[in-house]
Amino acid sequence: MSTFLQQLVNGISLGSTYAVFAMGCTLIFGVLNIVNMAQGAFFMGGAYFGLEAARLGLPAPLALAVALAGGGLLGMLSELVIFRTLRARGGHRWMGLVASLALARMMIGLAQEIFGTQVQRYPASDLMQISWEIADVRIQLLQVVLLLVSLLLMALLAFVLQRSSIGRAIRTVAFSEDVARIVGVPVGRTILATFFLAGALAGAAGMLLGNLFNVVSPFMGEQMLVKGLTVIILGGLGNVPGAVAGGFLLGLIEVFSVAYVSSSFRDAIGFGLIFVILLVKPNGLFSGFEERRA
């Protein structure tokens, strides 16, 4: 029983970072119907932004703000350099995938050039070493903070999308770019804002996971991209609440399959599941709330 509860705690804290990252991926898809393969690089970038900020002695919340802003700026950069031009030229949708992956590679190369290929770690903080034992279940303060920050980011995104004027604009563009233009929504700026939000979420997830595993490296984004794609398949492409649920689900699946099945087949179970879901329920497990265009 205590193993079960312990895995539940671990799975939820891991899943919350997956959820934060996947929300960004799915948001881009919901609005533009594309997969931005550079999200993994923004994730890596965010981890480094947060790391540098922490090393400069900024307190953790400010470092997180730096990671958010840094990731967001990278996201905007990808829109300005690649996707905007591709849309204007009417290029095939495949081109966005190839170009965003090339951008990701550039950024990985750049990160190696600047920060080196060595794995780096966040400055140790005594605060984060605190943990409690409740009925044989060890809960780290770090896990609690991660979960709270993730929930805060989810609530923030929900608020932005549902209540703010920029959120209304994003939802209109997601529904139909033409409709948005007719009702006077500035489509270009709205898409730019979407890329900022998605990049910021990826950057925040980078700092969160960098803290959870205490590893920051130029290559951390590639694995995360795979996880992000997995989650948005689970949740349904373009479905933000689905991405949250899918993120927690993937975190739990991974942790429990390590504990109860075999550590080696951890990922196989996740991907096998995706394959089945795609065939049985291609709109994701949580189809219903549809953010994507008709």
Binding site: V81, I82, T85, L86, R89, G90, G91, H92, M95, V98, A99, A102, L103, A104, R105, M106, M107, I108, G109, L110, Q112, E113
Partner: peptide, 22 residues
């Protein structure tokens, strides 16, 4: 060049081709 610089340049070239020769 160094491996990293090569990755950066390759990435930039691919982006340029995709953007200007769709």
């Amino acid at each position: 060049f160094s491996n990293q610089l090569r990755e950066i340049l390759m990435g930039a070239l691919v982006v340029a081709i995709v953007l200007y020769l769709p």
